[in-house]
Simulated assay, not measured.
Amino acid sequence: MWPFTKSEEVKPLGEDLPNDLKDFLIQKNNETTQSSSSEPYKFEASRNLNRVKEILTKQPIRNQEDQYQFEKFKLSNQLQNSVAINCSELEYNLNLCFQNYSIIKDMFKYPCFNKQQDLKRCKNLQTDGFKLLHYQDCYNIQQCNAIKQFLDEMFVKNFGELGENTNDNEKVNQFYNDLNKGFDKIWR
């Protein structure tokens, strides 16, 4: 209890709501729970996680040299580095925009705002994709590279070479659907 406040009995959440409002909120909550099964999943966490754990337990033990090379690879190809590589064309395009920006001509405009937003959406989508495909758990260098390549291909397929369509919700949903379908191919 906070000091300087009256001590009152704490009511359960929603206790003071009118009954018709309670019924409406319960109905809407049930609808969203039921409809989410038909909508594309952004993360199918439990199914994916169980599959990853199953495959990782079946992997053979590496010798010391192979383990060293794999750890060295993972250190140089961490998630954020891989996201930066996959979004590098957009970042290059943004840098070109800033180099061509003229203060005198474009004094009252925010420079390269659309390109900044494209880069930000690319990084967010790539990060989500790497997490969905369990990039951090990849078991060998070939699989890690396959995840990076697959994610880049799905990004270009759905959003264009320079991420022109990243703010289209239909394309975003298709991107996540493609990733969920590709998960089974990558983690077999």
Rank of each mutant, 00 (worst) to 15 (best):
E65L: 13
Q80I: 06
K28R: 12
R51C: 11
K123F: 00
N81P: 00
F113E: 15
M1Q: 07
S46Q: 10
Y41K: 15
L125T: 02
L90Q: 10
Q143V: 01
D118A: 14
G182H: 04
N177L: 10
E89G: 07
N145L: 12
P18L: 07
A146P: 00
Q143I: 01
F73D: 04
V83R: 06
S82E: 12
L119I: 06
E31D: 13
I61S: 11
F24D: 08
S88R: 07
N140K: 02
N77L: 05
F98N: 15
F108D: 15
Y41E: 13
L94P: 05
L119H: 04
N93P: 01
V156S: 04
C138L: 02
A146F: 05
E164I: 03
L90P: 00
N19F: 04
F159A: 09
C138S: 15
M107K: 13
S36I: 07
K157Q: 12
W2V: 11
L179E: 01
L56W: 01
D16N: 10
Y41N: 10
Y135L: 02
M1V: 10
I186L: 15
Y110M: 08
Q142F: 09
P18K: 11
S36Y: 04
Q69P: 01
C144Q: 02
L25W: 08
Q117M: 11
N29P: 00
N180T: 03
N19Y: 01
M154A: 11
S37Y: 09
W187T: 07
F73K: 01
E153C: 01
E91H: 08
I26D: 14
D178Q: 05
F70R: 03
N95D: 09
S36L: 04
L133W: 04
L119A: 11
C144A: 15
S82Q: 11
L132C: 04
